[in-house]
Computed example of a mutant assay.
Amino acid sequence: MLLGEMAPALLTARFQESVTANALRAYLAEFISTFFYVFAVIGSAMASRKLISDAATDPSSLVLVAIANTFALSSSVYIAANVSGGHVNPAVTFGMAVGGHISVPTAMFYWVSQMLASVMACLLLKVTTVGQHVPTFTIANEMTGFGASMVEGVLAFALVYTVYAAGDPRTGPLGVIGPLAIGLMAGAMVLAAGPFSGGSINPALAFGSAVVAGRFKNQAVYWVGPLIGAAVAGLLYDNVVFPGQAASVSGRGNSEGIGL
């Protein structure tokens, strides 16, 4: 009976922590950073299609998007790191939640902020470019949905593992190197898998473009794989590679009241 009474009380306490002033600032920080990240990545894909006649098969288009991904993610993580931890990605948030570095209610609010920001960024691009087609993430014809999901899972694993390592207090202060390392890893993963699975790595990125374009084919690929890869990365880092760490790797910023 006592356990039955404790569970609702714990859930209520967690929810209250997720609606404090600090928590609301964290959600706003996630919205802003995710908005600019998605705007840069999707915008770069749209720009390449406008400047290159056959962007789908031109290697320079892939390089352009990878560079935009690197710069945008590094900057987006940096500007939000001291407030929300700079997740900018539902997969990163999921990995942190599975590892116990962020509460489930807070993670859900992070997801809402990230996905809303992605939709708004893609919508703004569509409106301001006078209805130009908003590209969505697609898998190669020779790949299956399962194979593409596995590829996206590996990409997310690499990204979230880098996030954990960059935010580990035992490696010293985050500074500028941490966000840069995260961005470089994302850019490298886009170069490696872009032509095969699309190289989204970020469920919010794929979701926002799909909503605005009205095309949800293979959308599960960009959720199932990355979420599993992120969870495995977080659990592996905390429990196998660097077990028994003293401080939260996601506590790079102000963690008071936001369940970090």
Rank of each mutant, 00 (worst) to 15 (best):
A72T: 15
S75G: 14
T138N: 12
T57Y: 01
F31E: 01
T34Q: 03
S103Y: 10
T136V: 15
T129K: 15
T138F: 12
F109S: 09
Q16Y: 13
S84P: 08
T128M: 15
Y37P: 02
A40R: 02
A68W: 12
L28C: 05
S103Q: 13
G95T: 13
L51D: 07
L62A: 10
L73S: 05
F109Y: 12
S103H: 13
A68I: 15
G85H: 03
A45D: 04
H101W: 03
A66D: 04
L51H: 12
A29R: 00
A121T: 03
V134E: 09
T129A: 08
M96K: 07
Y110M: 11
A72M: 12
K126F: 15
L64I: 07
A13V: 04
I67R: 09
S76T: 06
G95D: 12
A97C: 13
V77R: 05
Y27H: 01
V112L: 13
L124C: 08
N82P: 01
L28K: 03
A107S: 11
A91E: 09
Y110E: 09
T70C: 12
S118N: 08
P105N: 12
V112R: 07
G131P: 14
L64G: 02
L51R: 03
S53E: 14
F35K: 03
A66M: 14
V38H: 02
L64R: 08
A66K: 08
L124A: 08
T129Q: 10
Q132M: 11
T138L: 14
S33Q: 00
G86L: 05
G43Q: 04
V104Q: 08
G43C: 06
A29G: 06
T106M: 15
V130F: 15
